[in-house]
Design a protein around this nucleic acid. Structure first.
Lengths: 233, 233
DNA sequence: CAGTGGTCTAGACCACGGT
DNA sequence: CCGTGGTCTAGACCACTGG
């Protein structure tokens, strides 16, 4: 079979994955070294290196210095999950997006939150509740705490005009975050706000964000009944 | 401030993210070209290129030929989700893992599934139900369909001895997949199998896998009450 | 058409970590 | 120790796309 004049790292990726799929290199197999693959494919080592690095990022192979590159045993199912701002999620469904601030209050950070995110006891926080709707129907209820110490000018933000997510994205562009998904029952004010039967299962996403180790905000996003979050890989 | 003798792509990434965080480069700003950044940092273009490529992968900047590199507006919250095999999930919790096959039957692919995954009408499938337990307590109920046409030797697999996931991973190492998360009520046999109150909200993960466009398997993994799936980024 | 990112090369040095 | 991957360099050609 003819070889392209120039070998791309894509070619190497395809060749390697193909050999893994066809069992030429079963799980756990030690792959040839980068230098050997260079020779085989007739390309520079940087090209092989990039191919193997990407496969490693995808969890297809595992690499260790000195020991070499192996076909992953039990590759974790690894998905990249893009969670767009709700605004966009709704519009991507082809629906009209509306947003309403329900409540806004300065509070002391509740104890459960303090423990969960590593904030100081009773640190002042802004507590917000807001409803995101699609074509006028409730789509997602957002409950959020923002630590005022982390973003002092949050006191001046007008959350009737801009969603907390968008304000924060503009204000604190970067951070570390942790996400948790769960199923919760519709209780408290959820049935009326989300138009759900009492006790109905609702999908919830919780996200905590830190800026250089200091907690910034925690949000609970509870979706309308039947909502599914999707990802491909 | 002193510059290291050799500039790493990590240095560039930190420098760029730092400028974005500090509003030197607000959202939407056009960054200097790779060549300009090379000159500024005193390194090769490949180094700058790798730094910007990784930032682009992370959704921090967006790149387009000819127009250049810009700070992303509304960066999507992008998480990498590793879903290990249940076996490992349980053991990572420090619990003893057990597995039991509940049912196994050859069926015609149900109509709803056919439509969802693009399989042929009435294609023969293997339908499996299995329970994964942690320290003897129900942890996850797995309901799976495997299209026999895609993996003919599935008929000889002994799913009492090996979990469907692990068998499939060994048999069909690669594929495209789609995942959906949702909250469902405990109905049918779920309450008794997962030790849940009838109607209780349960977290469910659905995954469909294809091999080169042909559907291979669909699985519904329903977790015990209260389970949370977590990710960091 | 021309500017910008996308990629490859050939060579080099280095850090990690088995043996 | 020394093999393997991790990374940087300096230079080059190419592909896409905005003006």
């Amino acid at each position: 079979m003819p070889r392209p004049a120039r070998v791309s790292y894509h070619d190497i990726k395809r060749a390697v994955t193909s050999r893994i799929q066809s069992r030429i290199w079963p799980q756990g197999t030690l792959l040839p070294t980068e230098a050997q693959l260079c020779a085989e494919f007739g390309c520079a080592r940087a090209t092989v290196s990039r191919a193997l690095r990407e496969l490693s990022d995808q969890g297809v192979v595992t690499r260790k210095r000195k020991s070499g590159t192996r076909v992953a045993i039990l590759p974790p199912e690894r998905a990249r999950l893009d969670i767009p701002v709700t605004h966009r999620t709704v519009e991507d469904m082809g629906a009209a997006y509306t947003y309403a601030l329900i409540s806004r209050a300065e509070v002391a950070t509740p104890a459960w939150l303090t423990a969960a995110i590593g904030a100081q006891e009773n640190a002042p926080a802004l507590h917000l509740t807001a409803l995101h709707s699609a074509d006028g129907a409730p789509f997602q209820l957002e409950e959020r705490w923002i630590l005022i110490a982390a973003v002092p000018n949050v006191r001046e933000a007008d959350f009737a005009a801009i969603t907390p997510t968008e304000w924060l994205l503009a204000e604190v562009p970067f951070n570390d975050a942790e996400i948790a998904f769960s199923a919760i029952p519709a209780d408290g004010n959820l049935p009326s706000l989300l138009n759900a039967a009492p006790g109905a299962p609702l999908f919830r996403l919780e996200r905590t964000t830190w800026l250089e180790g200091a907690p910034v905000t925690r949000v609970h996003m509870t979706y309308r009944p039947g909502y599914q979050m999707r990802a491909r890989y």
